[in-house]
Design a protein around this nucleic acid. Structure first.
Lengths: 157, 157
DNA sequence: CTAATATAGTTACATATGCAACTAATATTC
DNA sequence: GAATATTAGTTGCATATGTAACTATATTAG
């Protein structure tokens, strides 16, 4: 066993590491629902969920909300449009952008997905008390605000 | 604004979503340290950190610890070996595997990285009380055990 | 002990991704 | 109100990644 000295990182107590590993495992398992059964990639699912939540959105807003690369968003938006799941309309205020909205088919798919995804989340959260669930969400949100400060300070991506 | 009905997912309260977004932002910002200054990719950095913590390890153990794809680990291990940062020795017990260890150069790089990475973590955790920090690590660890149960149930990857 | 099965790790190929350069439009500055 | 700088989104290209097939070794069953 490695000695526990101040020169050795304890990975299990190192937040970026444990956070990423957890997020990865969660995403991986959850994605089986929308990937296997609906042929959606993770970026596509995120785009759909964001549009659904806000009714209508510009691509750049999705970029801001998710921190996904704009090329990732662009490609997801285009493939979803080709598949008839979202619809694009010229924006009145800025003709570089288009208003994105779900089509009937997109809404239908989303409506079928939501309960399954929520049920899956419930299973994940099974072991936590509702207090712990609240704490976790609160702490994650707090850290998220903090990391965005740090990113802005250092120049952002 | 979208109505808040039971058919619409509230993404900011949906754990898989907020968890991933946070983990991504954290990774992205942290990686500037080892990517820009040391030319390490995220998988390479993880491999180094895991070997450092355990002195010596097989590739398959890294796969188990991190849930990274075995091809990802394989490629990271090989590129690190080529760069002279880790060393491979035939394993006494299983000749399919090799014992992986850091070289002098690898250890030196790791030693230089650790304090910087810890300082960065400290900045991130700035806004949380030490109680909140403990809670967060505890909850993440708990969820991590839970997600691994779920993965095993459903067949694993 | 041999045959069948499983495991560690690599490779090949197809797909996904990120960055930089680009087009088109909008904002800003003088 | 041109000229300049920014911004939204796309495309090209190089790199990273995941899946499946493969090699070599270990393990298990009979």
């Amino acid at each position: 066993m490695a000695l526990t000295d101040q020169h050795t990182l304890q990975l299990d107590g190192f937040l970026p590491y444990v956070l990423n590993r957890l997020a990865d495992r969660v995403s991986q398992d959850l994605s089986q629902i929308y990937a296997t059964d609906y042929g959606l990639t993770i970026p596509e699912w995120r785009v759909i969920a964001n549009i659904a939540e806000h009714e209508t959105l510009h691509a750049r807003t999705i970029v801001a909300l998710t921190s996904m690369e704009k090329t990732k968003v662009s490609r997801a938006v285009n493939s979803l449009t080709e598949r008839g799941l979202i619809r694009q309309q010229p924006s009145a205020l800025d003709s570089r952008s288009r208003d994105l909205a779900l089509t009937k088919a997109g809404t239908a798919m989303y409506r079928k997905l939501v309960p399954r995804v929520l049920a899956w989340e419930q299973e994940l959260l099974n072991g936590l008390t509702s207090g712990e669930q609240r704490d976790l969400l609160r702490l994650v949100a707090k850290l998220d605000r903090r990391i965005q400060e740090l990113v802005e300070e250092s120049g952002g991506r």
